[in-house]
Amino acid sequence: MNPLPLDLQLLNACASLLLLLSFSMLAQRRVVNLVNLLALQGALLCFATVLVALRTGQAHLYLSAALTLALKVIGLPLLLHRLIRRLGVYWDAEPVINPSGTMLIGLLIVVFSFGLAQPLAALASTATRSTLGIAIAVILLAFLAMITRRKAMSQVVAFLSMENGLFFGAMSATYGMPMVVELGVALDVLVAMLVLGVFFFQIREQFDSLDLHHLESLKEVE
């Protein structure tokens, strides 16, 4: 059998690494490392976008690669690092509840999303469609990470990783979203980040901690 062309091989490798990073995020305890993982994920995403752009020659993909680089590899991680320093949660670690169990659920999610992606991928006509399953898996794994985390900071990181997954999925299925949508999403993420940043300070002022289980005391009915 013929091996795939090199760029598709590289893309597949990128996709697999993205998946691996998602799993590492599930198991990672330190907030700082989480942010670094996120930056790495962004970098991979940027690389994958360039690969696809080279293959298809679609100019807007270069733009979105640049956007990814600026926002997800440099901008947001820097912002998050600054936030971490300002909030003084640099050494914050949180217990991951039963990491093996979480990973096992993650594995089932991967099976589910791979199975889900196969009929979908059959509909798509792109050369990159085989990675759609990985994109779905990255989204759902980020969701799982958000569920299992209790610190506000790690939830935000997981949220951003979910956005990465969405972006990657769009690229696998249709060579990226229209530029307008992409810009809109990027702006949204940026604004959301700023709002959340403000929010963190408020939460900490209120509860002296970024642990979200304090929010449970906000309900009205006991």
């Binding site: 594995l107 099976v111 791979f114 199975g115 196969q118 009929p119």
Partner: peptide, 10 residues
């Protein structure tokens, strides 16, 4: 069935 294909190795 592709989904079964995914499940069986597990």
């Amino acid at each position: 069935e592709s989904f079964v294909n995914m499940l069986l190795p597990l």
